[in-house]
Design a protein around this nucleic acid. Structure first.
Lengths: 204, 204, 204, 204
DNA sequence: GATGAATGAGCTTTCATTCAT
DNA sequence: TATGAATGAAAGCTCATTCAT
C-alpha cells in the first residue's frame, strides 16, 4: 500500500513538473514554438513519457489552465474568508489578481495571449475557450463589486459594465508587467498601487 | 537613369505587395499560421523571391510592425494638429489608440504578446524589442499628459508614473478586446467609453 | 504437483487467450494494425505481460500461423479419414483448402503475402519462411494426387509438377477472393465450383 | 527552351525513380513498413523532396498503380495488334500477364496484396480501390474470351464466369511465383506453360 | 507471474531557407 | 530579378520493447 501511495505521489509530481515546464516554455518562447519535445527536454524525459500523463498536447494545455486558475480562485477565496470590509476586500482581491499574474507569468500570459485559433484542438478537447477557466474568478470580482455597491462603498452602476471595465484595466496591468518585462517601468510596486488607486477611485 | 528609377520603383512595389499580403494573412490567420509559402502564393511569386526583399521571416514581420505602428503615430499626429483643448485631445488620443488596436488586432497582439526570445531574428535584425516600435506613440501620450497638467486640466503628478499607469490600463482594454474576442463583453463601444471615463476621471 | 499442474494450465490458458485476442484483431484489422497494446487491452492485461509468453510480436504472429495452419491440416486429415474415392477426396480437399482461406482470411493473407524480410523475427525465431507452416498441407495434396494417378482417376504425369500447378491455381482463387473482396465477383460459390471443375478436369 | 525541356525530363526521371524505389520497398518489406523516409533514403534524397513530386503517400501509391497497369495494358494492346488467331492471342495474353507480373514483382504484388483497409487514404485520394487500375486489362481478357467463343475456339459458356475464373487461376500463378520466391518450385518456365495448358484446355 | 513507468526509434508532413541557373 | 529544386530541422504522435519492483 505504501508502495502504491508513493507511486501515485511520484506520478503526480511528474505531472506537475511537466505542467510547469510547459508553462515556462510557453511564455519564454510563445505557444506555437513550444513542442512536446522541448517540454520533454526541459524535464529531461523522453517525449513519449509525456503521453503517459496527458492524452495529447491539447490535454496538457487544458490541464495547465485549469490548475492555474484553480489556484487563483483559491487565493481569492481565502481573501473572502478574512471577513474584511467590502471595499478593502475588493482592493485586496485586485491586488491578489495582479500578484498572482506576476508570480505565475507563464501561466497567466499563456491563458490570455494564446489566440484561440491556435487552440482549436484544446477547445475541442473539452472545456471551451481558454479564458473560461478564469470565469470563476471573474464571478468573484462581480460579486465583490455588487457587495460594494450594496453597502454604498462605491457608486451604484451597472455591475456587469463596471466589472468588465475593471477587469480590462487589471488585465492591462498584469499583462503589461508580465510581458513587457524589459520596458523601463518605474518601481513596479509603486506603479501597481498607483494604478489600483485610480481604478478604485474611479468607482466612487 | 529613367531605367534605374523605374527599377527602384518596381522593387519597392513588390516589397509593398509582399508586406500587404503578409498583413492580410497575418490578420486572417495570426502570426504562426503565416508561412512564407502562403505569402508567396498570394502574390503569385515564388517563395524564394521574398528573400530578395527581406532577410528572413523575422525581418518581414519586423517591417510589418514598424510600418503599422508608424500609422498609429500618424493618427496621433493628426489629432495633435486638430488643435483641440488638452484634455479633449488626450481623450481622443486614447480612443484612437484603442481603435487602432481593434483595427489591427494581429499586429497589436503580435507586438505585445510575442516573447522576444521567440524571435531570434527580429531583435537581432536591428531595432531592439518589438514594443520599441510603439515608443513614439508612448512619447506622445506622455507629452499630452504633461500638457494637461501644465494647463491644469488634470491634477499635478509624476508624469512618467501617470503615463505608464495610463498605458497599462489602455493596454488592458485593447488586449482584452482583441484577444478574448469571444468573451461575452457588453457592447464594445459603451465598454470602451465607460473605461475611458474612468481612466480620465482618475486623473483629476 | 497439483499446484505445478494448475500453474502450467493457467500459463497455457493465458497464452491461448493472447493468441485468440491476436487472431481476432488480426482478422478485424489486419496484421499491421494489430499492436501489442491492443492485444493486451482486449484481454485486460498489461502489454508487458505478453512478453512473458512470447519473445516478441513476430513470435506471437508466428505461433498464430502455426496454430491456424495446423487446423487446416487437421481438416484435410478428417477428409482422408472419410474413406472416399480418390478423386472425390481430392476435390473435397481442394474445396476445404479454399474454404479454410476464406474463413481465416487474415491468416491466409498474412502467411502468403508477408515478405519474409518484413519479419526479422519470425524466421529468425525458428521455423524458416512463413509458408513453411503450410507444407504439411501441400504434402497431403501431393499424396492425394499420386493416389489419383495410381488408381487411374487422373492422367499419369509428373506428380510434383501437377501438384505445384494445382496449388498455384488454388492459391489464386483463395487469394483473389480473400483480397479483392470488393471486386464484383459473381456468386462466390458458383465461381469456386466452376473453377474447381476446370482444375480437376484439366487433370484427366 | 532546351533548359526547360531538360528540367522537365529530369523531374520526370526523379518521379520514376521514386516510384521504382517505392515499389521495390513495398514488396521487400510490405506496404505498412515502407515509409517516405525509407523511400527517400533508397534514392538518396531528402524525405521532403518526395513531396515536391507527390502530394502525399496516398498520391504516390496511387500513381504507382496507375503507371504500372498502364504498362500492362499497353503490352496486351500490342498483342492484339499482332493479328493472331483468337485462341493463340488469348494464350499469348495470358502468358504476357504472368510475365508482366514476374518482371514487375514489386508493382504486381503491391497492387494485389495490399489490404484495402491499409489504403483508405489512397482510395479517398481518388481512384477507388487499387485493383480498379487493372480493370482495363481484365476487360481485354473478357473480350478475348468472348471472341474465342464466337469463333468456336472454345466452348460456349458464361463469359463473365469463365473470365473471372481464369483470372483467379492466372493470379495464383503470378502471385505464387512472385511471393513465394524461396519455395522449391520446379523450373518456372515449365511450370507456367504446364499451367497455361491446363487453363486453356479446361476452356474447350 | 504481472505490472507501470519509461524509452528510443519511427512515422507523415510542413516549414524556412539556400543555391544554381 | 526571379525561380524551381532541394534540404534539414522540426512538429505531434504511436509503437514494440525493457526493466525495476
Amino acid at each position: 500500500m505504501g508502495v502504491a501511495e508513493r507511486r501515485a505521489r511520484e506520478k503526480d509530481d511528474l505531472k506537475k513538473k511537466i505542467l510547469n515546464a510547459a508553462a515556462e516554455l510557453f511564455v519564454e518562447e510563445g505557444y506555437e514554438s513550444v513542442s512536446m519535445r522541448k517540454i520533454a527536454e526541459r524535464i529531461e524525459y523522453a517525449p513519449s513519457t509525456i503521453y503517459l500523463h496527458f492524452r495529447d498536447k491539447a490535454d496538457l494545455v487544458g490541464s495547465l489552465c485549469t490548475t492555474t486558475f484553480a489556484e487563483l480562485e483559491q487565493r481569492l477565496e481565502e481573501i473572502v474568508e478574512q471577513g474584511l470590509a467590502p471595499l478593502e476586500r475588493l482592493r485586496k482581491s485586485l491586488r491578489a489578481y495582479i500578484d498572482f499574474g506576476l508570480e505565475h507569468p507563464s501561466h497567466y500570459a499563456f491563458v490570455f495571449s494564446t489566440p484561440s485559433s491556435a487552440l482549436q484542438g484544446v477547445a475541442a478537447a473539452g472545456q471551451g475557450p481558454l479564458w473560461a477557466c478564469g470565469m470563476g474568478s471573474f464571478e468573484r470580482l462581480r460579486m465583490g463589486m455588487q457587495e460594494c455597491m450594496a453597502t454604498g462603498a462605491i457608486r451604484e452602476a451597472d455591475v456587469e459594465l463596471v466589472s468588465q471595465s475593471t477587469w480590462l484595466m487589471m488585465h492591462g496591468v498584469t499583462m503589461g508587467l508580465v510581458f513587457e518585462s524589459d520596458f523601463p517601468f518605474l518601481d513596479r510596486g509603486k506603479l501597481i498601487e498607483h494604478t489600483l488607486d485610480r481604478i478604485i477611485n474611479s468607482l466612487r
